[in-house]
Design a protein around this nucleic acid. Structure first.
Lengths: 351, 351
DNA sequence: TTTAGCACTCGGGGAATATGAGTGCTAAAC
DNA sequence: GTTTAGCACTCATATTCCCCGAGTGCTAAA
């Protein structure tokens, strides 16, 4: 059921003015903005049609029309112009990302912050290992009589360490031995497999040695969970309050709680795995209840070979999709490029 | 100018009911709650006195009275009962902290979250090295042909590492040599001293070797700044919206922006160094403009020997001081105890 | 098929009004 | 001297009412 060209132009005019003004759009306004040489009455007829077909809604009789979710969807899919970024903006984005000395998390955080400032909406970020992560190697370093550093490197080249205190000292050969056991028995295993192996090992190993092994392996398991775990971060939540649909606190509160780290609840649709790069979820298309009146535009990017990240913008269904998608896709591309080139494998540690 | 006992009881009743109700307190309410057997007229006279002395304010003629900053101050200093925590609460706090396998940052974050839930106010946390931080030792580990791990341990026993990629491979002796240079020339130096030393070294060192040294030293400098840098984190910002004084968005917005990481501006009064353990700043006693109508209750605690942390609660001047201080001091004590015992020196790395 | 015209609807804004809690003051009572 | 009752006054908030105007749907003419 294809729409006539005129209907499309009318719909587009309505979506765009509603996005700009946040107020229902009347036939008069459409007549001026759509650039059609027809009277308001004609427009009204067309608008009535569009309402019947489900692309528009009227908040109450005798106000203008506002786009429905389906209306936004059509707009996003067919009607929307792709916006160009200004040179200042691309510059800003590049600056935010090009701090190559900085580590992964901080770059991602920074990206979220800048994207939020550029789009005037809150932004969330997420990063997680794509698939099964394992430990590639263990290293142990004696630093004091009663403490050594365990260094764990995962197959996605992430390196983490921990200072481990032990009651009695450890001789060099002992340390070598420990290292050998770890590297031979626990390399290439997933978190769960490590747990199993550790359990089995307990029975036929000297208690003292086992305890040491367990300390390091537990740390390694922690590292692996940390890798798989999706770190959800947000930036610019206060931007929410700038938009009229969240002026009432009753509306703003649940969404804000959802976005801040306050709730322990499950997060956004973890579309980390979908092949698509850009994803737009409009209002009811969202699963979570807190997002029912909210749209999410998100893009994913690769971090090295083994990780994938998502960065997304959250706002009212009346979101400036053209603006947001333009900035977002540039961001995602830049991130992929930078994590591909500058950091051949994600370097890491700290904070 | 000591207040009569009766005045104190009236003031206390006013502060406590105002804290509970957020509405100006009239003479009638005071008569009932203060437990004095006098009429409302007498109370009114006393309240007039208290107003003259600056402990109370009237938002407009003919509303009840509300406490002034001085009134809160007096209440906090002399009138307030120390609250007891319920067993459930102490249990909750202990649970939050006793995840000993977790690392520093995560424990602090978790503490902030729980404190926020227990107090119904937003919470901020901060941690920083107390004084001059230096590197205690360097370790280098070859992991691939063209990459090695640099491990840096500071004198506060914080260990960080980084995977460093190099164009050409490095032989074992070369690595030993590099390690020797680093450990002999850069141990015990502050960030600034390192920079100087590095500059001086540039002239009389082979370019290739110098570049390697610089890579590692730059990383070490980053680690040191990271240590000194005060990591400001918040939890439960949305609790703000629950309190009537922030019902209007105009009021909530600036404070929220201040608390979220949205602004790059300087943070809270960095009273990391003051000897006092607990600190209450009421309204105008705060320096920052965003906090003028806001009270901050904060407590500091030790993290090992070389770091100190602050955890604080932010809320309207009409804050439930008794409740907050009780929980906060328990938290701070627990944190000190746990970082003192369980983690003799703050172990570290990751996230 | 488009347009002009018109009666109708309904939300928002503003003024006027009512309400009621709380005050300050005075004069009487203790 | 201190406490109390009484009373007129103030002022923020809630309620009501009314008006206005934008926008609609429908009809009849172009």
């Amino acid at each position: 059921m294809a729409l006539s060209d005129r209907k499309k132009r009318i719909l587009r005019a309505i979506v765009e003015t509603y996005i700009a003004t946040a107020e229902p759009v009347g036939s008069k306004a459409v007549a001026q903005l759509a650039g059609l040489d027809v009277s308001t009455a004609t427009i009204r007829n067309e608008m009535a049609d569009l309402t019947d077909q489900g692309y528009l809604e009227q908040p109450h009789t005798s106000a203008g029309r506002i786009p429905s979710a389906a209306g936004y969807r059509l707009y996003v899919n067919e009607l929307m112009d792709r916006q160009q970024l200004t040179i200042q903006e691309t510059q800003r984005i590049n600056d935010a990302l090009n701090l190559k000395m900085e580590e992964l998390d901080r770059v991602i955080d920074r990206a979220g912050k800048v994207l939020s400032q550029l789009s005037d909406y809150p932004v969330f970020t997420m990063a997680a290992a794509k698939e099964r992560v394992t430990v590639k190697r263990f290293d142990l370093l004696m630093v004091e009589e009663n403490a050594f550093i365990a260094v764990v490197m995962t197959d996605s080249s992430v390196v983490k360490n921990k200072l481990i205190h032990i009651p009695d000292g450890l001789s060099d050969p002992q340390l070598q031995m420990l290292s050998a056991v770890l590297n031979s028995s626990f390399v290439g295993l997933s978190r769960e497999e490590m747990e199993d192996t550790l359990d089995k090992m307990e029975t036929h190993t000297a208690p003292g040695a086992f305890q040491l092994i367990a300390l390091v392996v537990e740390f390694a398991m922690e590292v692996l969970s940390g890798q798989r775990e999706q770190k959800f971060r947000t930036a610019g939540i206060t931007h929410l309050l700038e938009h009229p649909e969240y002026r009432s606190l009753d509306k703003a509160k649940p969404l804000m709680a959802y976005l801040s780290e306050d709730t322990d609840e499950p997060r956004l649709p973890a579309t980390l795995d979908t092949g698509k790069n850009m994803n737009i979820l409009i209002g009811p298309e969202n699963v979570s209840d807190a997002l029912k009146d909210t749209s999410v535009v998100m893009a994913s990017y690769d971090i090295g070979d083994n990780m994938r990240g998502v960065i997304g913008v959250v706002g009212p269904t009346r979101m400036d999709y053209a603006k947001v998608t333009a900035r977002l896709s540039y961001f995602a591309d830049s991130l992929t490029r930078m994590f591909g080139k500058e950091l051949p494998a994600p370097e890491d540690s700290e904070e």
